[in-house]
Design a protein around this nucleic acid. Sequence first.
DNA 1: TTTAAGATTGAAACGGGTTTCAACAGAATC
DNA 2: GATTCTGTTGAAACCCGTTTCAATCTTAAA
Lengths: 331, 331
Amino acid sequence: MAGIRDVARRAGVSPATVSRVINGTTPVAADKRERVLRAIEEMGFVPNEVARSLFKKSSKTIGVIIPSIRNPYFTQLADVIDEAAKKRGYRIVLYNVHHDLDQERAALQMLAAANADGVIVASNNEALQEELSQYHMPVVVVDALFQTQNVNAYLYCDYYQGGRLAAEHLTACGCRKLVCIRGVQGLYTAQARYEGYRDYCREHGLTEQVVECDYDFEAGLAMTEELLERFPQVDGIIACNDMVAISVYKILHKRNIAVPDQIQLVGFDDIHLSSLISPELTTIHQPITAMGRRAVEVILNEGQLPKEGRRQSFPVSLVPRETTKRKEAVL
Amino acid sequence: MAGIRDVARRAGVSPATVSRVINGTTPVAADKRERVLRAIEEMGFVPNEVARSLFKKSSKTIGVIIPSIRNPYFTQLADVIDEAAKKRGYRIVLYNVHHDLDQERAALQMLAAANADGVIVASNNEALQEELSQYHMPVVVVDALFQTQNVNAYLYCDYYQGGRLAAEHLTACGCRKLVCIRGVQGLYTAQARYEGYRDYCREHGLTEQVVECDYDFEAGLAMTEELLERFPQVDGIIACNDMVAISVYKILHKRNIAVPDQIQLVGFDDIHLSSLISPELTTIHQPITAMGRRAVEVILNEGQLPKEGRRQSFPVSLVPRETTKRKEAVL
DNA sequence: TTTAAGATTGAAACGGGTTTCAACAGAATC
DNA sequence: GATTCTGTTGAAACCCGTTTCAATCTTAAA
């Protein structure tokens, strides 16, 4: 492994000069630059990133912490962040913390110890929010919202409006017995969706019917069975996310319940998959791409940062597809 | 940011002693150890991982290079590797190289420069195989196979057998006009699957019908249209992977072609998703979990390493589900 | 021609743990 | 009591690019 001193010796200059050639920090005489470049080429020298980042206190790395690599919502987000980061010469380190607080804490600590230039956290552990500021690097929380101010930004969607839209759409499509599968309590993202649904129901004289479910499909499968047990007359289901919606569909399909004819279904997130499966899933679109890109901007301190409360909300929209009847058809 | 020298001062010992307490490399007198631990606690000291890895030339990191983070096959693999690595105190750094040779080369270089302890490559660029050995770290190639020997191991499946199994199953289920959607030529994994299909056809007097397609679903959608155009009488389709199979189903569904009644369908990989969608996908199972775990073992040099040719093949199996008719039903 | 200003360059310090090496203390052996 | 061995400990070197600082060399202004 050739080091910068080897290159320097071969080129007949000092290590400092080699460094300057590599980084272009200070002009170097043309002939020396030439010799240095040739030596680098000949020796296949690649500067050691560890040594470099030890001094610079930057590793050109952005940490991305996601609760599950199995949920396409998060991999899609990670993909967007990855692309945005690479465009600026940064790389991302993806930490899959399996919804586990300790793993998340460990990831944060590792990132701090690895001189990461920032962390994007797509995780909901309120317990950790307090600790986030002690690491001296920019932190952006995506898809969650808390009261604490020790984070550079919260990027989230108008989940409340999403809940409303879903309920409204199902109603417009003819449903009268809506059931909301809400995410586990305590999560803002889950709570807000539910409240949107709840308020819409109250305003329109519909009965609230709620079950609670984790964000993954195993939970979705089990919960759907229970849901059908408890609410046999259901004609419209709002799932807490697309993966759960897909599980719901699976159970309905297995039981020969026609979608959307007997029961209509709305998901949440609008992951790619939801338009790829058959039938295509009606869902609430989250601007994942915009959120991911924004997260990178905030980390790298570009453009206008969110001021008041360090929060930035993104709009959601309903994407009508095949698991609900077309509104026109209903009229 | 407290450093080891700060801790040492506070505990009234030398930095060397603090280091010894942290790493347990040399016995330290009980009272001093006590003072050091207290100082660490009080100052919230976390050793700087960069400095540590600069000296140790190890960063407790395993690089994982995947061609696409959108394909669940790779994220599932990454998840398994992640779990196996964490169990041993290593972390993974996931590089999503978007099927791009330059990005892959850059990832490798970064990993080398970052003192990674090894790299698991799930990518098929033969061009890169030659370069792999120049990085002085263990490299394991998963889901690919080449002639070069400058890699610690190749872990792959019996794709050929997979191709045969798929053809055999479809035939057993009553299909006579099989079409194979094979992956792009030049990839061993794609070639072997195709050859299994081809040989089975030849042995049983079936006509070979082949189209070629990238491994992602956009390509799958387009290719299915073309396939139906070129082979209107098709009654059985073998897709190069599950994502493509899902796209195929989507098009068939859209055209009101019944699966499995009119056309039967077999995927490849057996990603989680294939049993989650409706109808559940009949597919060729790859032991992703076993491969991922093995990859980590090889990187960390545990257990018996593959000897002859540094290759290790894993068996595949056919998982009959809902996109093919049950064999019994046919008999 | 002289002086001030600017461009290059290398020696050495630096960042922050880790390890080597020599020194010292107390214990065991003769 | 002298000697050897074992257990502890700190000073300093080390890992390897980067940067500071002062020195050297040009070039331009006076």
